[in-house]
C-alpha cells in the first residue's frame, strides 16, 4: 500500500484528459441532442396546441356556417312550399275555372242543340201533320164537302160588316170588273147560283160573277172582288195555324 507518484501524476493527467474528451464526445452532443429534442417536442406541442386552437376555431366557424345553411335551407324550403301551395291553388282554381267554362260551353251548346233538335222535330212534326191534314182533306174533298165549303163561304160573306160591304161594293162599281170566284173543283150550278145570289144580296148589286177552278186551293173558295179578296179554304186555314204554331 504505497503511492507511485509518477503513476499518481499520470492518473491525474489521464483523468483530466478524460474529462475533456468525454465533455467533447459525450456530454456535449448528448445534452445538445436532448435539448434539441425537447425544443422540438415543445415546438410540436406548441404547434399542436395552435393547430388544435385553429381546428377548434374552424370547427366553430363550420358549425356556424352549417347552422346558417340549415336555416337558409329551412327558409328556402318553407318559401318553396308556400310558393308550391300557392301555385297549386292557382292551378286548381284555373283548372276549375276552365272546367266551369267548358261545362258552361258544353251546357249552352247542348241546350242549343237540344233546342235546335226540338225545334227541328217540332217543325218536322208540324210539316208532317199539316201534310197529312192536307192529304186527308184532299182525299175527303167530295161533293158534300164542296157544298159544305160553299155554304161556309156564303156564311163568311154574310158575316162581313156594313163598312166592308160598302167598301167592296164601291170598288166593284168603280172598277167595273166582274167578281172572280175560284174553287178547287168546278162548282155545279146549284152552288154557283147560291154564291151568286149571296154576292148580289150582300153587295146590293148585280155584278157579274165569274167562276174558275184552282186545284191548288184545298177544299176552299176564294173571292176576288174589285181588288178585295175574301178567301176561305183549308190551305189558308192550315197556313195560318202553321204560322201560329211556329
Amino acid at each position: 500500500m504505497s503511492i507511485d507518484w509518477f503513476t499518481f501524476t499520470a492518473q491525474v493527467i489521464n483523468f483530466l484528459v478524460l474529462v475533456g474528451l468525454l465533455r467533447h464526445f459525450l456530454y456535449g452532443p448528448v445534452v445538445r441532442a436532448m435539448q434539441a429534442r425537447e425544443q422540438k417536442v415543445t415546438q410540436r406541442l406548441t404547434d399542436a396546441e395552435a393547430a388544435k386552437a385553429e381546428a377548434n376555431q374552424q370547427r366553430v366557424e363550420l358549425e356556424k356556417q352549417s347552422q346558417l345553411l340549415q336555416e337558409q335551407r329551412d327558409d328556402l324550403f318553407t318559401k318553396a312550399k308556400a310558393e308550391a301551395d300557392s301555385e297549386r291553388q292557382r292551378l286548381i282554381a284555373e283548372a276549375r275555372k276552365e272546367a266551369d267554362t267548358r261545362r258552361a260551353h258544353w251546357t249552352s251548346t247542348f241546350e242549343r242543340d237540344q233546342k235546335e233538335l226540338a225545334n227541328q222535330t217540332r217543325r218536322d212534326i208540324q210539316r208532317m201533320g199539316f201534310q197529312a191534314a192536307r192529304e186527308t182533306i184532299q182525299q175527303l174533298a167530295d161533293e158534300d164537302l164542296q157544298k159544305r165549303v160553299c155554304q161556309t163561304f156564303v156564311k163568311q160573306l154574310q158575316m162581313l160588316n156594313e163598312i166592308q160591304r160598302a167598301s167592296i161594293a164601291t170598288q166593284l162599281a168603280d172598277s167595273g170588273n166582274p167578281v172572280l170566284v175560284r174553287s178547287t173543283d168546278e162548282l155545279d150550278d146549284t152552288d154557283r147560283s147560291l154564291i151568286r145570289e149571296a154576292i148580289h144580296q150582300v153587295f146590293q148589286n148585280n155584278a157579274e160573277v165569274r167562276f174558275e177552278s184552282e186545284p191548288a186551293l184545298i177544299a176552299g173558295i176564294e173571292m176576288d172582288a174589285g181588288g178585295y179578296s175574301l178567301p176561305w179554304n183549308a190551305e189558308r186555314a192550315l197556313k195560318k195555324m202553321e204560322a201560329n204554331v211556329a
Binding site: 478524460l18 474528451l21 459525450l26 429534442r37 422540438k40
Partner: peptide, 18 residues
Amino acid sequence: MALLVIGSWWITRRLTSD
C-alpha cells in the same frame, strides 16, 4: 479511457434529435 472515448465518439457521431 479508449473504450469510453471511442464508444462515445462512435455513438454520438450520428446523434439525432428526432
